[in-house]
């Protein structure tokens, strides 16, 4: 290891901590989010330094890119609604929406209380708060010191699973070890994780319709840019999916690039035709999880165990699952960006 590398690592580590601090402490939320996105990009650099190109791709696309887009979209909606109920009477929940908390007297006193209480930054709340913060800083420093000590006392030889992964890589159907772990050795984790993603969408859709923020017009630059970029993004997604078998890439990276295309498209004001936003959209959303489960069940019926791929089919099955997962991940993430269920045509 050269001196230059050490200096770079130290600077990067310092920059990560500094950016995180700035992002969290910034009084301006917009600036905080932009700094957080910058933090995500530096994280991607750190992953490259740690020989983890797969994570670097995922971080840049999901961690910085999509999370950033989600945060900015939420902030924009927050600002819009903030003008409506700024420091005044809270917006009343729609009628019949609170079956379980019908308690008029308590509700009223509570909202009156909220009217008078100005939201204050926590640091201005007097001596008690200052003492609390001081105590917190001390105890968290102790926590950090303890954890740091624990990390430093780990043996310098990692007792990891590199060797077992390398030994079974041949039989896994792919030659990128990370993809082998994600889709084969620990494929069950990935199955549940697709469930988590889908569940987040169920949750977001169940919150009801958020007032949509329709830009007057996307502007010529965004329009041209998106026309230019979207086909490329779709191509890149396909490439990442394909290359994931033997080089950095795979379903998650590809899916998030696909989602980026979707987000761009949504930003230009495009909306899914109501004919497709019912059944067809739902099918695509569950395709990743669905194909995974179907493959699992078929393999069990053929006499194997859960997600036990016969080595000769492993490559093809993994590609099939990844292709479906890419599509679902991309569309789900784009749908999460939209924030609420697209309006459907006449219900089935």
């Amino acid at each position: 290891m050269t001196l230059l590398q050490s200096v770079f690592d130290a600077l990067l580590g310092f920059a990560l901590l500094w950016l995180a601090w700035q992002a969290l402490a910034s009084p301006d939320l917009f600036k905080g989010i932009v700094l957080f996105i910058a933090f995500g990009l530096l994280m991607a650099l750190a992953w490259v330094r740690l020989d983890a190109p797969d994570i670097a791709l995922a971080e840049a696309a999901i961690g910085a890119g999509l999370t950033g887009a989600l945060l900015l979209a939420a902030l924009a909606r927050l600002d819009k609604s903030s003008w409506r109920g700024f420091g005044r009477t809270p917006v009343r929940p729609p009628e019949g929406n609170n079956r379980d908390v019908i308690h008029p007297s308590k509700r009223d006193t509570k909202s009156a209380h909220e009217k008078t209480r100005k939201p204050k930054p926590i640091t201005e709340n007097g001596k008690g708060q200052a003492a609390f913060c001081g105590l917190l800083v001390v105890s968290l420093s102790a926590l950090a010191a303890g954890l740091g000590y624990a990390v430093l006392t780990l043996p310098s030889q990692a007792p990891g699973l590199s060797d077992s992964v390398a030994a079974s890589l041949e039989a896994s159907g792919v030659s990128n070890p990370v993809t082998a772990v994600l889709l084969n050795f620990r494929g069950y984790d990935t199955l549940l994780e697709l469930g988590v993603l889908l569940l987040a969408l169920f949750g977001v859709w169940s919150f009801g319709v958020v007032p949509e923020r329709r830009e007057s017009s996307p502007g010529p630059v965004l329009d041209r840019l998106s026309r230019l970029l979207i086909p490329w993004l779709i191509l890149v997604a396909g490439y990442l999916l394909w290359v994931g078998a033997h080089a950095p890439g795979g379903a998650f990276q590809a899916g998030s690039v696909l989602a980026a295309a979707g987000v761009l498209w949504l930003l230009t004001g495009w909306r899914l035709d109501t004919r497709f936003s019912g059944w067809p959209l739902r099918i695509i959303l569950v395709a990743g999880l669905g194909v995974f489960v179907v493959v699992a069940v078929v393999l069990i019926l053929m006499g194997g165990r859960l997600l036990e791929y016969p080595p000769s089919f492993a490559a093809a099955l993994i590609l099939l699952i990844e292709a479906a997962a890419t599509l679902s991940i991309g569309i789900t993430l784009a749908a999460l960006f939209l924030g609420s269920r697209p309006e459907t045509g006449p219900q089935r």
Partner: peptide, 26 residues
């Protein structure tokens, strides 16, 4: 060479984190 198992775990974690973030923002 680095151990690929934690890499896969972190990719799983990143997807879980973005799902949780989307839910939290909504």
């Amino acid at each position: 060479a680095p151990d690929p198992v934690p890499h896969a775990m972190v990719i799983t974690g990143i997807v879980v984190a973005v799902s949780a973030t989307a839910l939290a923002l909504a």
